[in-house]
Structure formats: C-alpha cells, structure tokens
Design a protein around this nucleic acid. Structure first.
Lengths: 199, 199
DNA sequence: GTCTATAGCTTGATAGAC
DNA sequence: GTCTATCAAGCTATAGAC
C-alpha cells in the first residue's frame, strides 16, 4: 500500500463500487478487470487473489471510520451534546465512504476466516464502546432507555440503514439527513439536558 | 403451490436457510439438493430454475408479512397505542419468518427484473403507508419528528436490524426484545399521550 | 505493467433410464 | 420423483511473452 499505491488503489476504488452494487460473489475477475480497462490476468500483478481485493477494501472502510468516531464520545460537553456530534459525524463519514463501508458490513463474511474475524472484532469493540457510552448517559440521568445494549444496537442499525434508501439525487442534502438523524437519535435515547428540562 | 405443495415447500424451507446464511449466488444447485437429501438434477422436477426457488422464497416472505401489519395501523386506539402494537407485531412476525424475510430484503436484487420490481413495489407501498401513519400522528399532535418520511425509514431500518444481531441463544426472549423496541420507537417519534403528558 | 492463452474446476441446466 | 451422466459456459488463477 506504501510501495506502489496509486494504480492498485484506483482499481480498488472501482472494485468497491462493483462489490457494493452486485455483491462480491457476483463480480468476476473479468468484470473487475474490464471496469479498470485491463485484462483479467493483469490484476494478479497487483493482488494475489480476489479475496485480497475484498480484504483491502474492507480494511479501508474500517480504518479511520471506527477510530475517528471514538473521540466524539469522549470530547467535552454533556452526554446529549456528545451524542449529537457522534451521530452527525457518523452520517457524514459513512456517506463519504459508503462503498467500502457498506462492503465491509455486507460482504465481509466472504473473506477468509482469519480476515473476517479480525474485522468483526474491530466492529464489535466499537459497538461495545457505544453501548457503554449510552449506559453512562443513563447513569448520569441524561438518557432513558430500557436496555442500553439493545438501544445501542438499534441506533447503529438505524444509522447504517442510510445507504439502503438515500440517493445522491435525494430531496435532502446529506447535512440535512445528519441533522434529522441527530434529532431522532436524541429522542430515541430519551435525551434531556442536565438542567432537567424535557427535550 | 396448491397442486403439489409438500415436497416443494420442504425444499424451499431448507433453501431459505441456505440463502440466508451464505447468500444466493454462493449456494449451488448441488448444495441445495444435498441439503434436501437428493441429487442436483432432481430439483428440476420441482422448480424450473434456481431463480424460481429464490422468487418463491421471497414471495413467501412478503406474503402475509406486510399485509398483516397494515391493520395494526388502522385499528382503534391512539396513534401511540397503534404504534406500540405495530412494533410488537413487526418484531414477532419478522422473527418468526426471519429466513424468507431477510432473503427478501437482502437477495431480491438477484431475481429477474420483473420479479424484483414486483416485490420492490409491495415493500415500497408498505413503507409509504407507514410514513403516512407517522405524518398523521404528527398532525394529531401525538408525535414529534423533523420529517415523517425520514423517521419512517429510520424506524423500519431499526426494526430490520434485529436479524443482524439477535441469536436464539440470546439474553432476551423475543417478546422482551419486542417490548424493548416498542419503547425505543415510541421515544424516537416523540410519542406523548393525547392528554399532553410527556412520556 | 499489461498482454494472450490456458489449466483445472465448478456452475446451472438438460436428457433419458427407472 | 429421483437417479446418473453430461453439456456448454463461466470461474479463479497461473505461465510466459513483450
């Protein structure tokens, strides 16, 4: 990735789009090569296998995304304020990298067991980090949910659903969608300011 | 489906599970046959093609599910009460038929264009029906959301996420999960009783 | 770094016996 | 209703020329 980055990354960007649209097993080596303007055999100069292509796409989707969201949960401000920033940041980052991230979420079970497990753990740790944040908010009296673990999964599922329905031609800009979701998630967790006033 | 229902339906039940676990393109005719204890060629006595198997599974997932949920939105009671019953019913029905329904949601783009479009329309009409319900609840002063269309999609995405994380061995029974989600969704839409008291 | 050619295998589907 | 045998096509990956 450092030695000869450019051509390989161009190919992976095209491949991410194809895996996103048709699913990993339905995209042949020939189709991947054709979309990059080369022949099938030439791909093996850049990658050892089709699985390696999927792995590097998933890794790119994972890198930065989960790690970049962590700080929003530990920044200053009330739990409600931090949650708002988390949601806003999640939506914008997700949308920006939606092809590799959606491929990570939907196709990573086609990876080798080792690669699949590696990526699953990163995601799992992130989910747990978010669930802990909600539990802390409940303990602090800012959030009200029946079960922070269920609520955490529900929020993340809701956010991940964006790429199922939003189109670039949509009625709302991505900033508006982010603002909308920030309000909905705040209501979902029963957020109220520390002053005690109902939201 | 009425003339010679039994054997074909047994095969489809096994097939739904396999498509659910591995994805349609990754399940071969031979694998489908093996899981039903017969040979590959024998499947073509029951089905004209692999695509027909997928179609009938998706159709089974769709049938009853969407139509059965409609009445909960038009039943008696306040908007909040109807929403509670909708969510409860959604979770229980979804879980009961999770293999064919998840296959419908995740794999129907592998159908022929005509079949895919047919099922897409049924789902789309259901989504719109639910969005209209939320808009009416907002107009009646029972719900508060920034945009009923976005809120509707968000709620359905949240509910559909269940099969991503719940296992039959899970900590909570499906009834508990349903109750949990009913509370979360009520909070998400800002539900308050007609008396005006904050939930 | 890309090409052509091809090995080795699996795929969905068909034909015909029983 | 299930079997065996098989076809034609497509698949991933490799080899070697340029």
């Amino acid at each position: 990735m450092a030695a000869e980055p450019r051509r390989a990354d161009e190919i992976l960007e095209v491949a991410a789009r194809l895996f996103y649209e048709r699913g990993y097993p339905s995209v042949s080596i020939r189709a991947l090569a054709h979309a990059s303007g080369i022949q099938g055999g030439s791909l093996y100069h850049h990658f050892a296998s089709k699985e390696e292509m999927l792995y590097r796409i998933c890794l790119y989707g994972s890198e930065g995304f989960f790690a970049g969201l962590g700080p929003t949960l530990t920044a200053g401000g009330s739990f409600s304020e931090r949650l708002q920033e988390f949601v806003r940041s999640y939506v914008l980052r997700f949308w920006e990298r939606r092809y590799p991230i959606a491929v990570l979420f939907r196709e990573s079970h086609h990876l080798s067991p080792a690669h699949s497990e590696e990526l699953r753990l990163v995601r799992r740790r992130f989910q747990q980090r978010f669930q802990r944040f909600l539990a802390e908010g409940v303990a602090a009296g800012e959030f009200t949910v029946p079960d922070p673990k269920v609520a955490g999964i529900a929020v993340l599922d809701l956010l991940n659903g964006i790429d199922n329905w939003r189109r670039t031609s949509g009625r709302l800009g991505i900033e508006e969608v982010a603002g909308n979701y920030a309000v909905l998630v705040a209501q979902l967790v029963g957020a109220r300011s520390r002053k005690g006033a109902s939201v």
